[in-house]
Design a protein around this nucleic acid. Structure first.
Lengths: 233, 233
DNA sequence: GTGTAACCGATTATCGATAGTCGGTGGAGG
DNA sequence: CCTCCACCGACTATCGATAATCGGTTACAC
């Protein structure tokens, strides 16, 4: 019975995103998909024309991408897509390891580990391995780790972790490193087991090694394999 | 607060910074100094008038502050200074612990720990303790940890760590006000010692506990005592 | 009184236009 | 041939104006 809602027929409640946010999303997709190459320059006016907006929202979107470290801006120079090559990838695994080890510790100490959810994700990984569905496996893996990070109940930790753009990177790695999906499921199952066992230090170390392991995998086409000096403890 | 009245007549010379950056700096100072209270709203147009610019640079500055987590922006609502209270402070220590433990591990594995520099900072802390100079002690402490993070040679780790600094910096000072400066020097000296000794796991654990210790200290005026559930040691 | 819808003032999001800066270019000087 | 420098075209940083929204408030029918 409320006939009004002035003339503008539809403003779908869901589309409450600002233009800047929409543009950011679009650019993220184009960058991770490789449509826009690393090193390429993003010209504000050109993008504005392309998306049919003015320069302002584009500029804001670029700023957000910069905060995500997907692009680099030199004042008065322009903004460029970063080469986040294997180096960065490797680095990100080490940082993830640090954060996830701590998340594991916090969650176990607080007794908030969502074991059921974790078991569910492992199950999903096994299913993905059977159907050879890398995307599904990646999604389950990210979900697994996110559950742990959430369980730590530390907002700042969560933010830092999310800032690493986990999803974008894992899928890239899995493809690039050609990890056997079955191994992924197995690794996570082992990690889960040590958490279930309740041995804090062992589980934490396991959480850390889990990521350091990936940092050691060959990420690039040149396939330099190295698993050496690291042997932690 | 101070109405119209361009904050500074001109910032004439070697202004290699963009207006947005200058505004950001100014706002950071006003926020950490408490001139702008937590929860307070930052009105773009008002700030623009105050600094004698248009809305655009102000907007950009606010975005950057948001990335730093000093303010919070609700689309179409406005941006507000965050109450980064003890909760966040405590959280930041835990995240720092995670990153610094890993930094210690990486630096020791790579053999890049700048022992001399670390010794120098400890010495500075002792001097600060003697003259009861909390600011100097805080500065030396930050420098000490930064040396380690730098030595890890992991750009992403460094970035994540620096991102914490805004909050951490203020908190260090606050805590320093309550912690005996001599204890700070002693704690760092002990950490340094375990690094010099070369025992990787002990040093890492020490690095972690070093920060968790601060997380447990009472940070607020209400002096809520620490949680005891942490049998991490 | 109570709940609802249109109205209002304040403020953000976006636009279109302009000023200034940056890197590159081609000719003059050596 | 190589270097230096004023000039040019392309873009970013910034401006001033406008469109759209939001929260609160008021008028009005029950």
């Amino acid at each position: 019975m409320t006939p009004d809602q002035p003339a503008s027929a539809v403003t779908p409640l869901v589309t409450r995103m600002t233009l800047a946010q929409q543009i950011r999303e679009a650019l993220v997709v184009r960058i991770v998909s490789g449509e826009i190459q690393p090193g390429e320059r993003l010209v504000e006016t050109r993008l504005a024309a392309m998306y049919g907006t003015s320069q302002a929202p584009v500029r804001e979107a670029l700023r957000e991408l910069e905060a995500m470290r997907m692009v680099e801006t030199r004042p008065r120079r322009g903004t460029f897509v970063r080469h986040f090559v294997q180096q960065t990838l490797r680095e990100s695994y080490v940082v993830r390891a640090a954060l996830e080890e701590t998340a594991t510790r916090l969650a176990m100490l607080a007794g908030t580990v969502p074991l059921d959810a974790l078991r569910r994700e492992v199950k999903a990984m096994r299913a993905a391995a059977r159907t050879d569905d890398a995307v599904a496996a990646a999604r389950a893996s990210v979900a697994f780790h996110r559950h742990i990070v959430d369980a730590a109940r530390n907002e700042l930790l969560k933010l830092s972790w999310e800032a690493l753009q986990i999803e974008a990177r894992t899928s890239v790695t899995m493809v690039a490193a050609e990890v056997k999906l079955k191994d992924i499921a197995r690794d996570h199952a082992e990690l889960l087991k040590s958490i279930e066992d309740g041995d804090l230090e062992t589980a934490c170390k396991h959480a850390r090694d889990h990521q350091w392991h990936y940092a050691d995998l060959p990420h690039d086409a040149h396939g330099r394999a190295r698993r050496t000096s690291r042997q932690v403890s």
